[in-house]
């Protein structure tokens, strides 16, 4: 199975939400990273045929899905970033409805096991109108897996999940990736770090890089520094460099800084994290990005 994007672009009015994106994906988890407005959701909506591109092609196993959307719709499972549920249906009824819509025969057993998998077995007969945000998202994860999709696209899947469920979902993604393509879009870099074989980095609608986590880390080797600074030094550092993290302690502020040279006297080189590699790469892009850094 193969997903190919060729010079893909999407224009809204005068603004290009996505432009000249070339990407080839094989089985495994690809983490789609990028700041707000980078074009991640637009990219996923085009691949799932929800939105038509302005230019370029999307090929699924060689078939152009813009011309033949049915070619990918049978094989795709999609969890949008924002989606609704029918509040008057129970979780089980909602999944039965979507299974029927997708043309799945005899889905009962799979629905039961999916409810177990997302830990909703005890709430399966409760109406979705009474579900919390996290529970709705888990119902959304279950619906994305209904048809055992060859292409699983999940947009910010762990938003609203508690740490236990987040860990469970990471494990699930890794398990699912063995024989399918999983596209994971998120701001939460540790989620990508835990699951992704490849990373596609988008910024301002353009693909900055498509690489492995190891290569992304290698690129920032020797550019991450640790230091303990005062509050006044911190303000100066922030104005000159990317401060990846900071922790206030009794002896000062412990900071990790992304910089090509030692940013402050006494700074020591540190082992980079994927989040720092991401910050460094986005900072190098032509567009100054607004970052959301997960803790």
């Amino acid at each position: 199975m193969k997903l190919e994007l060729d010079t893909l672009g999407k224009q809204y009015g005068d603004t290009w939400a996505l432009q000249d994106v070339d990407l080839e994906l094989d089985p495994g988890v690809v983490g789609l990273l990028g700041p707000n407005g980078a074009g991640k959701s637009t990219l996923m909506q085009i691949v799932t045929t929800f939105t038509k591109p302005t230019e370029g092609t999307v090929r699924w196993n060689g078939t152009d899905v813009v011309d033949s959307p049915g070619a990918i719709r049978e094989d795709v499972g999609y969890l949008p970033q924002e989606f609704g549920v029918y509040p008057s249906l129970t979780a089980r009824e909602f999944l039965q409805y979507l299974a029927a819509v997708r043309g799945l025969s005899e889905p009962t057993e799979r629905i039961e096991q999916l409810l177990n998998l997302v830990n909703l077995e005890d709430d399966a007969d409760r109406r979705l109108g009474g579900f919390s945000g996290g529970m709705r998202r888990r119902a959304g994860i279950a619906q994305a897996l209904l048809s055992d999709p060859d292409l699983l696209i999940v947009d910010e899947p762990t938003v609203g999940l508690d740490p236990t469920e987040r860990a469970r979902f990471r494990s699930l993604l890794t398990s699912l990736a063995a024989d399918r393509i999983v596209v994971l879009s998120t701001h939460i870099v540790p989620d990508v770090e835990a699951t992704a074989d490849e990373i596609a980095l988008l910024d301002d609608g353009q693909l900055l890089t498509h690489t492995t986590p190891a290569d992304l880390l290698a690129a920032v080797e020797g550019s991450v520094w640790e230091a303990i600074v005062s509050e006044s030094e911190l303000a100066d550092l922030k104005s000159r460099h990317t401060v990846a993290s900071m922790t206030r302690r009794s002896d000062g502020v412990h900071v990790r800084i992304v910089a090509d040279e030692s940013p402050v006297q006494g700074a020591n080189l540190a082992e980079p994290t994927l989040e720092e590699a991401y910050l460094s790469r986005v900072e190098q892009s032509p567009t100054t990005a607004t970052m959301e850094v997960s803790q």
């Binding site: 029927a100 819509v101 025969s105 005899e106 799979r110 096991q113 999916l114 209904l146 699930l172 398990s175």
Partner: peptide
């Protein structure tokens, strides 16, 4: 759990 998930069969639209 993923391995033992029953594979769905593509059938007709569940009218």
């Amino acid at each position: 759990a993923v391995r033992t998930l029953p594979a769905p069969e593509q059938g007709r639209f569940g009218l």
